[in-house]
């Protein structure tokens, strides 16, 4: 979707400012927003792509106004209600209407879960359509759902520099479609191709799945 999260190339946000002596979390609420999100992710009711989409589909004004862990908190609340783990009413009142039939991720499984992560590489039957050195164009497209092809590269031509094998396809995975995987490539775009005379030389590299690309 062409949401406020798709920030590459936007103007007007000002300088990048580092925080002095930045803590890992700013206060208890950030710690808990973080840990609750990971703990509920461990319930297995959604995947990372569904989770990203829950954050980015907020109204643009709200997305831009939120601090980072507010996005996470909002995303978590949305997913809990969408999956039916929690009702709107429970979220509003804070009072549980009975126990869930889904079991919590137990503390003694946290280490293993983090250590394993969730690998995204998959075997696919079809051969890759492109190889390093090939010129490709990112298709002109505007899908209303989750996608990982930012607006600033759509319609532009780049060169394949790496083939990473096949990975779970984020666009399908965000719709809850399991088992859809495609070849994925690192594609280099010159700054001139992306930004014209306003570019600063050099290149921008993105990882893009085969369905985003066409031969150029």
């Amino acid at each position: 979707m062409n949401g406020a999260h798709d920030m590459g190339g936007m103007h007007g946000f000002g300088p990048v400012v580092q925080e002095k002596d930045e803590p890992w979390f700013h206060g208890e609420w950030e710690k808990k927003a973080f840990a609750l999100t990971l703990a509920c992710g461990g319930l297995g009711q959604w995947n990372i792509d569904i989770s990203r989409h829950a954050r980015e589909k907020q109204p643009p004004g709200r997305y831009l106004d939120n601090s980072y862990y507010e996005q996470w908190l909002h995303g978590l609340e949305v997913l809990l209600v969408e999956t039916g783990l929690v009702t709107e009413e429970e979220l509003k009142t804070g009072k549980a209407n009975g126990k869930s039939n889904v079991a919590a991720l137990p503390a003694d499984r946290v280490f293993k879960a983090l250590q394993q992560g969730s690998p995204y590489a998959r075997e696919v039957a079809h051969a890759p359509a492109f190889k390093p050195g090939d010129r490709v164009r990112v298709k002109s497209m505007n899908p209303p759902g989750h996608t990982r092809a930012p607006q600033y590269v759509r319609g532009h031509v780049g060169e394949i520099v790496m083939h990473h094998g096949a990975h779970v396809f984020a666009d399908a995975s965000a719709r809850g479609e399991h088992g859809v995987a495609h070849h994925i490539y690192n594609v280099a775009f010159t700054a001139e191709e992306l930004w014209g005379a306003d570019g600063q030389g050099g290149a921008v590299h993105l990882d893009l799945w085969e369905p985003y690309l066409e031969p150029a």
């Binding site: 600063q200 050099g202 921008v204 590299h205």
Partner: peptide, 10 residues
Amino acid sequence: IKVWDSTAEL
């Protein structure tokens, strides 16, 4: 300068 935009799970 090469900028790497982490658009997938790499």
